[in-house]
Amino acid sequence: MMDPETRQALFGYALRLGDTSLVLGHRLSEWCGHAPELEEDIALTNVALDLVGHARLLLAYAGEVEGEGRDEDRLAYRRDVLDYRNHLLAEQPNRDFGHTIVRQFLHDAWAVELYDRLAGSTDAGLAGIAAKAVKEVRYHVRHSGDWLIRLGDGTDVSHTRMRDALERLWPCTGEMFERDSAEDRLVAAGIAPDPAELRAAWNARVAAVLAEATLERPADGWMQKGGRRGEHSEHLGYLLAEMQFLPRAYPDAVW
């Protein structure tokens, strides 16, 4: 039997992962019908579908751990910005295909390390979700990494765009490796991997892909933080307003 503090920490952890997947999947879904080429339109949507799929599993699990009867939709559609726990990186707007790819790669390179380790979690619920997710995320990081290389190395125009996107999004990466007291508890119980361990693996992968993309790794300056505590950018409010419109406008309806 899990003690109440660990249970609370696990709820928060699943919520953070679920929210990050949902918000990022939502962002990618905005591309559907508008991508640079038909094949890539289909590919991006596949990634979006995977991410929303992970979000459903994680939010449903969070609701179960919380034990207050909230299901995936209750959590997705009836929380406002203050209660969302996603990474700031995930909520950044698509801007152009270059920003989308950089955002995706920086996330995927983190997610693949995370789920790989989380599949060995002592918590069976998380381990099961991670075992499924890691297969999909391995493909995501290959896809976004390949595109990062193509566009970094492609033309002068694409190189400049990728460099700018990388510099703009880099300050959102620090938050992925934060650790708070709730995570200390989960790491100690073997439920969650140590973020510091993720960071080393993430650094190595990012360095290798950036080198092939002929892009320089930006310096680790001041990092934007707060998404994990509900302190978000201005972008998330609009995303949620759009996403939650129907359930908010018709609170009694079932869809």
């Binding site: 508008h34 640079p36 295909f97 193509r150 566009l151 190395d153 033309t155 125009v157 694409s158 765009r161």
Partner: peptide, 16 residues
């Protein structure tokens, strides 16, 4: 718009 916005991407992939 999708086609025009994607031009630099298609060109860059071909160039790479």
């Amino acid at each position: 718009k999708a086609w025009d916005d994607g031009a630099w991407v298609r060109e860059a992939a071909a160039a790479h």
